[in-house]
């Protein structure tokens, strides 16, 4: 590889380096990018190493939101303090790859990873979190759940050339958060994040691994919200969980080449959704 390697020491330097050369790529843990660079699937003119940018690894509160730096590793996101803040993200972190990948792989890198996103993005979409994309001109907040999950790589919709993901802004919710992950063969996974907010009737559900982006099941969410008892927040019927699962599967329609594989994926989505509801609401 003939690329230049830059090691900026601050966020501003990193953003400037990326803005100067739109073909440069940022690299943090490198668990997803470096294999692609080595196989020449991507040919960046420069790599901007983020290891020395401490600002990317910070986190904090900001009026009802948790600000998580893009450089936080999976291992860090699974720690007890962050797990208490955003339980679904910690649950997702615990099911990523091997210990080595969790030690190196970062939140920002996962948002931009190749393939069908199945780890952080469905959680962020369910939480209605926003991703902070920074360029020398300023910061743009993008909400993954408002993108077009079925129309091509989500990273391209999310980030403009020359921008750097600096972190995510996650609303702090008092409700329940569930994350379910299931292998479906050939190294592929389906995931489902379910969030039941502090207000009765606030239910959000996103599916990962089914399409190029995380897919929200808005109609199924509304249906489930309507089945919740206005005072207790409980579901009206024990069969609601299974019905919700079928509705989510119908709405999400995971993609696969073969019909048999497609049928299995729909079945898995339905089971994951049912289980998430059962865990969240009991029963």
């Amino acid at each position: 590889m003939d690329a230049t390697i830059l090691m900026p020491l601050s966020l501003d330097e990193a953003v400037d380096a990326l803005a100067r050369d739109p073909r440069a790529l940022p690299v943090a843990g490198g668990t997803d990018l470096m294999p692609r660079v080595n196989a020449e699937l991507v040919r960046p003119s420069a790599l901007v190493g983020l290891a020395k940018v401490a600002d990317l690894r910070r986190w904090g509160y900001e009026d009802g939101f948790a600000m998580l730096g893009a450089g936080l590793t999976w291992a860090r996101l699974a720690d007890a303090d962050l797990a208490a803040l955003v339980p679904a993200l910690a649950a997702a972190a615990n099911e990523v790859g091997t210990a080595q990948v969790r030690a190196m792989g970062t939140l920002g890198g996962n948002i931009l990873a190749s393939g069908r996103p199945a780890d952080s993005l469905p959680v962020l979409a369910a939480l209605e979190a926003t991703v902070s994309c920074r360029s020398p001109g300023g910061v743009r907040e993008v909400a993954p759940h408002l993108l077009e999950p079925r129309s091509g790589p989500i990273a391209e919709q999310l980030l403009r050339p020359g921008e750097l993901i600096t972190g995510v802004r996650v609303p702090l919710l008092r409700g329940v958060q569930e994350f379910v992950k299931a292998p479906v063969g050939a190294g592929r996974y389906l995931t489902l994040a379910l969030v039941a907010g502090p207000v009765v009737g606030d239910v959000r559900c996103a599916v990962g691994g089914a399409h190029p982006g995380p897919v929200r099941a808005f109609e199924a969410e509304r249906w489930l919200a309507g089945r919740m008892d206005a005072r207790s927040g409980r579901l009206s019927d024990a069969r609601d969980a299974a019905d919700f699962g079928r509705l989510v599967a119908d709405e999400v329609r995971p993609e696969a080449e073969q019909r048999a594989a497609r049928a299995h994926l729909r079945h898995v989505v339905a089971v994951c959704a049912r289980r998430a509801v059962q865990r969240a609401f009991g029963g």
Binding site: G97, T98, G185, A186, G187, R188
Partner: peptide, 15 residues
């Protein structure tokens, strides 16, 4: 369990 010759090759992982 994991290596499906007809699909994407997926070696077993430590998990």
């Amino acid at each position: 369990l994991t290596e499906d010759a007809e699909s994407v090759w997926a070696p077993p992982g430590p998990w």
